[in-house]
C-alpha cells in the first residue's frame, strides 16, 4: 500500500527532474561523475541515499524492484530500503534476479547474467577513484580533465613492488571506453568483468558526495593493469557448501569456535535457485518447504 502522505517514490517532482537530467548526462559521458544536488533522505548518508535517489528517479509503478546488500536480499539495510519503496512507490518487489526490472545493490553484482530489460543501481560511498591518492576535489577534477591517471598506475605498481600483487581486492578501478577512470563502488574485483559489455543499464549514485555516474549497456570497461601483471578476477578456492556452485563469490561463515568454517554463495537468490534445481553442496540438504 502506498503512503499517500508522500509523492510517488518519495521525492518531489522538481527533485526528480534534477536527478533525471543528471542521469541522462551521466549516460552521455560514461564514467564521468556528474555533480547533483543530493537531498537529505529519510535514511542516513552513507546508507544508500545516492542509490535510493537514483532508484526513485527511475522507478515506474509497474516495476519489480530487487534490493540487495552484500548480494543478499535479507540483510537489514536491503530490507529497510525495499520497505521504503514498497511504502512510498507501491512497487512490486522480488528476490529473483531474473524477475527484477530495477535492482538496487550495495557491494555486489548479481551472479545471474543481467538482461536488456534491467537497470542496476549501485550505492556508492566514495565515487572518486583518485580520492585516496589525492584528497582534494579541485585536484582530482583537474586530473580527470587532463586524463592524468599516472598516480593511479604508480600506486598499483607500488603494490606489485611490495607484495608481488596488486593489493586492491575491492573497489578495483576501471577505465571506461578508454577515457574516464571510474570507481565501480566497493564490489569485489571478482565482479569487475561483469561491468563490461553488460546488456543492462548501470547507474551509480553517491548521495553524500553528490555524484551520479553511469555505464550505458555494452560499454567497454577495462580493469586497470599492467602488461606484465594483467588483471585477474579473484576466484574462490572452494565450492559453495550449500549449492555446490564452483564459480560464484562466496562468504566465509565461521560455524564454531574451533576454526570450523563454511563457504556459501554471497548471492542468496543465485544459491536458492540452484538448490531449488536440486544442486546440493558439501553441507547442504535437499530443499524442503520448511527450509525455503
Amino acid at each position: 500500500m502506498t503512503d499517500t502522505a508522500y509523492n510517488f517514490a518519495y521525492l518531489d517532482e522538481q527533485t526528480k527532474r534534477m536527478l533525471r537530467r543528471a542521469i541522462l548526462k551521466a549516460i552521455a559521458v560514461p564514467g564521468y561523475q556528474v555533480p547533483f544536488a543530493s537531498r537529505e533522505m529519510p535514511m542516513p548518508y552513507g546508507w544508500g541515499t545516492g542509490g535510493v535517489q537514483v532508484t526513485a528517479a527511475c522507478l515506474c509503478p509497474d516495476d519489480r524492484l530487487k534490493v540487495i546488500d552484500q548480494g543478499a536480499d535479507d540483510t537489514t539495510n536491503a530490507v529497510s530500503i525495499r520497505k521504503f519503496f514498497q511504502r512510498t512507490a507501491g512497487v512490486a518487489t522480488t528476490e529473483r534476479t531474473a524477475e527484477a526490472t530495477v535492482i538496487q545493490t550495495r557491494h555486489r553484482i548479481p551472479e545471474a547474467p543481467l538482461t536488456e530489460d534491467q537497470i542496476l543501481v549501485y550505492q556508492v560511498p566514495i565515487p572518486e577513484p583518485l580520492r585516496f591518492l589525492e584528497p582534494r576535489e579541485t585536484e582530482t577534477r583537474k586530473m580527470h580533465e587532463l586524463e592524468e591517471y599516472g598516480l593511479m598506475h604508480v600506486k598499483l605498481y607500488e603494490d606489485i613492488a611490495r607484495h608481488g600483487h596488486i593489493a586492491t581486492s575491492y573497489a578495483y578501478p576501471v577505465k571506461v571506453e578508454g577515457r574516464y577512470v571510474m570507481d565501480p563502488s566497493p564490489i569485489p574485483k571478482f565482479d569487475n568483468p561483469k561491468l563490461s559489455d553488460c546488456p543492462a543499464i548501470q547507474l551509480f549514485g553517491a548521495g553524500r558526495e553528490q555524484r551520479i555516474y553511469a555505464l550505458p549497456p555494452y560499454t567497454q570497461v577495462v580493469s586497470l593493469d599492467f602488461e606484465d601483471h594483467p588483471f585477474v578476477a579473484s576466484r574462490a578456492q572452494h565450492d559453495c557448501d550449500l549449492c555446490g556452485a564452483d564459480g560464484s563469490y562466496l562468504d566465509e561463515v565461521i560455524i564454531d569456535d574451533l576454526g570450523g568454517r563454511m563457504f556459501v554463495c554471497s548471492d542468496t537468490d543465485f544459491c536458492t535457485t540452484r538448490r531449488e534445481l536440486g544442486h546440493i553442496g558439501r553441507l547442504g540438504a535437499p530443499m524442503t518447504d520448511e527450509v525455503a
Partner: peptide, 19 residues
C-alpha cells in the same frame, strides 16, 4: 551518516581482503 555506515555489513569486501 558516513561514520556510522561502517556498522553496515561489509563482509563481501572483507572477504576479498581476507583472501
Amino acid at each position: 551518516g558516513f561514520l556510522e555506515h561502517i556498522k553496515l555489513p561489509h563482509y563481501v569486501d572483507f572477504q576479498a581482503e581476507l583472501e
